[in-house]
Amino acid sequence: MNIFRLVGDLSHLLAIFVLLLKIWKSRSCAGVSGKSQILFALVFITRYLDLFTNFISVYNSLMKVIFIASTVATVYLMYIKFKATYDSNHDTFRIEFLVVPVGGLAFLVNHDFTPLEILWTFSIYLESVAILPQLFMISKTGEAETITSHYLFALGSYRALYLLNWIYRYYFEGYFDLIAVVAGCVQTILYCDFFYLYITKVMWGKKLSLPA
């Protein structure tokens, strides 16, 4: 464990709970893409199948349980409890256009052709594009609530911190995973446009609104 990965994991945890609290407190999921949340739930479920078979540490197991539970809870709040506030008219990204190609790629490009490894690879590839429905929804509505932009900033920062973690681990531990690094770069690059808007607008107390 290193500081980049620890802060990255905490940033990820913060993002998930900021979103969960926003929906719970405001009793509304306006402006939030349910499709992205479904993809994130799929990412965690396919990645953490080794939860009971491969014990790493209390921290590792605890975080896996929290990530799965909080994301499933978010999907539940969006599609069941506060379904009436779900903005399906703007959450129209065709996620099958993400899941199918990512699934095919996981079969073709992986470290080891075994079910658990292919599912892990699928999860890594899917996570790199899972935010697209959310970014697409913001581009359609033309703006995002401030709390939603904080959610996105924390979520985008987590994988950017993981990139620093992989640089650290490469030089100090000789650890390198090309699949995770490439997917992590794609994932972080997708946030660049948002990071620019967040830093130039939200940081100065303005609302995040995309140029019309």
Partner: peptide, 10 residues
């Protein structure tokens, strides 16, 4: 990856 196959990251 160059390290053991152990997946120790979240």
């Amino acid at each position: 990856q160059m390290s053991s196959g152990q997946k120790d990251e979240l």
